[in-house]
Design a protein around this nucleic acid. Structure first.
Lengths: 244, 244
DNA sequence: TCTGCGTCTTGATACTTATCAAAGAGGACA
DNA sequence: TGTCCTCTTTGATAAGTATCAAGACGCAGA
């Protein structure tokens, strides 16, 4: 197993984490942060291509992405795979497992990554005594639902071109929320992964990248994508197919 | 406003509710049930076609469906609507609003319905002192995420015929979980609603109903649908498109 | 640097679903 | 009971995306 632990030094604490405004610590005071830090002892590296958990694994802990990128996919009874999320820094993985005590999704690192492990039963204990942490946790759960609804909207109402545009804008916005350059996107996932996520085939994804490039909205260099006209991308998503 | 209150008599208590094994009360003892009942004072009727809440409304309470059927739809910035759920008895509405303090979705009753209103800030207070209720609430939130992932799977991987088959099976399973006849489905939503939910046009939905009927899997009589061969429907969903 | 292999792009064609159109069925209300 | 209106079904055609196929590109390892 290439998933290794590394020491919980000062750099690896919620109180110092650059993602604390996005993740569980949001809104906590210093004393509460200590309690949370005490819980989130285990930080782990997950190297590119490694699974952090698989469907059927017993659920014991949530995982927050610290650095890197993951993909979460589920496999239907019929064997079809569907990627349900591409979690990045500050996002929680495993929330859907609370209801069954087993993981439903599979989590794979798309690049060398680090995660913080949050033992769930201990977290629930802490929630009871830290109302602000409880509320923030509920906000994160609720936000995950809202995010999923956003993807449903994409899957249900958009054409291939709009899906890809919305996908790039989504990444751009999430980078911006993390104070990273929002217009330079290094996609860690393949065209096939993007297609799976968006309900498209990889060839169609590739064509739509080409179309957006030909229309001057983006430039592409393999997986490195630059957004040239963010407003036009947004307008495209807003207005929908041209004929409407 | 046709949303009216009715008295909280004995029949309208979590402890006597036929849905208590599906809803928030699951796993609570008698004493805990009293505490929850105390919270869920307000029961309301919502007549067919009425909105219970709209996007933008301040979020103050969750709502549990007691009887009847709702649809939840969201409107994108571009004005496209997407139905994200058809909640029925025992299911919570408004979970996605916790993260923003405003509702994102719109809830409309598809038939005369009754709901239980759960003031959210008071609920959070109660969760802190009732660990079992807290855990059940987290399970319901988590289950909502898992349900959404199931819909993503449908939207992203299935053809029109499979989508409709999966939709009917989903309803059938939910009826069964409520001890209602699982093979007789009275659809309270239009073909257009079903299509919106599944990412299809209403004509396509109609054609797929006809196809399933011609294949002997169901019979239809307007919105009343009977499942004749549940196993075949399940097999259809499992195996995917014939050519695979 | 060269080779090999997986990923990506592009093209031609087939298939699925949307669109446009019209007729039929069902329910609400007078 | 009859009429109106909405919803549903069905058909013909168009559009969008998948499929099949081949070549280009890029990266890892020799």
């Amino acid at each position: 197993m290439s998933v290794t632990s590394f020491e919980a030094n000062l750099k690896h604490r919620c109180s110092n984490c650059s993602l604390r405004e996005i993740c569980l610590p949001l809104g906590l005071d210093a004393e509460e942060l200590v309690r949370l830090d005490d819980l989130v002892k285990r930080r782990r590296r997950v190297s590119s291509g490694q699974h952090l958990f698989r469907a059927g694994d017993p659920f014991q802990a949530l995982a927050a992405v610290r650095t890197g990128f993951f993909k979460i996919y589920e496999v239907s009874a019929g064997g079809h795979e569907q990627i349900t999320a591409f979690p990045m820094g500050g996002e929680l993985m495993g929330l859907d497992a609370i209801s069954t005590d087993d993981h439903r999704g599979n989590a794979v690192a798309l690049e060398d990554s680090e995660i913080c492990e949050i033992p769930f039963s201990r977290l629930e204990g802490l929630l009871s005594v830290l109302p602000r942490l409880q509320h923030q946790f509920h906000k994160l759960l609720s936000g995950a639902i809202a995010t999923d609804h956003g993807l449903m909207m994409v899957l249900g109402t958009m054409t291939a071109e709009l899906k890809v545009a919305a996908f790039l804008l989504n990444l751009s916005n999430r980078l911006e929320a993390r104070n990273q350059p929002p217009l330079i996107i290094h996609l860690p996932m393949s065209r096939e992964d993007i297609g799976n996520y968006l309900g498209l085939k990889l060839e169609t994804v590739s064509r739509m990248f080409s179309k957006l490039r030909d229309d001057g909205l983006i430039t592409t260099e393999g997986r490195k994508t630059k957004i040239h006209d963010r407003e036009a991308l947004q307008a495209l998503c807003l207005q929908g197919p041209r004929h409407i």
